[in-house]
């Protein structure tokens, strides 16, 4: 079990490092080979994740304000991901913590924020 956990942790770190290197070295604004948002292309509306790639590039270069401009929600989502990953790591040993982090108030609140962000960014053109 612990060996499997270590393997998963190493795999995730390797993928994160690789992706980080790509988004650090290449600017999605200029390079053509980055994937395009399907939802935006099909509907003309932005999805909650639109701008994540450009925001990641900006964030990796220390440009927090630039990242906020491309996708203001990304930082909140990353914080949430970090929190959930911590809870996931502790799931079998600390069920109470896990339940607190993934309680319906936290998850429901996050879901409401995603939906609000999705509507608002299209209405307000964020």
């Amino acid at each position: 079990m612990s060996r499997r956990r270590i393997a998963i942790a190493i795999l995730i770190m390797a993928v994160a490092l690789g992706a980080g290197a790509i988004y650090f070295l290449f600017d999605p604004n200029e390079s053509g080979f980055f994937p395009r948002c399907v939802f935006l292309t099909l509907t003309g509306w932005k999805c909650p994740g639109c701008g994540t790639q450009r925001a990641a590039h900006a964030l990796l270069h220390g440009d927090v304000m630039g990242a906020m401009r491309y996708n203001a929600f990304l930082l909140i989502a990353l914080a949430m991901v970090a929190l959930c990953a911590w809870g996931e790591w502790k799931r079998t040993t600390n069920t109470r913590l896990y339940l607190a982090i993934s309680s319906k108030w936290v998850v429901g609140g996050f879901l409401a924020m995603v939906l609000a962000w999705w509507v608002l960014r299209n209405v307000m053109d964020w």
Partner: peptide
């Protein structure tokens, strides 16, 4: 408690461009 997969759910929402 079974896994909620919340990490992957959020990542899929934010990164995969598919709502």
């Amino acid at each position: 408690c079974p896994p909620t997969n919340l990490v992957w759910a959020i990542l899929a929402t934010v990164l995969c461009c598919i709502p």
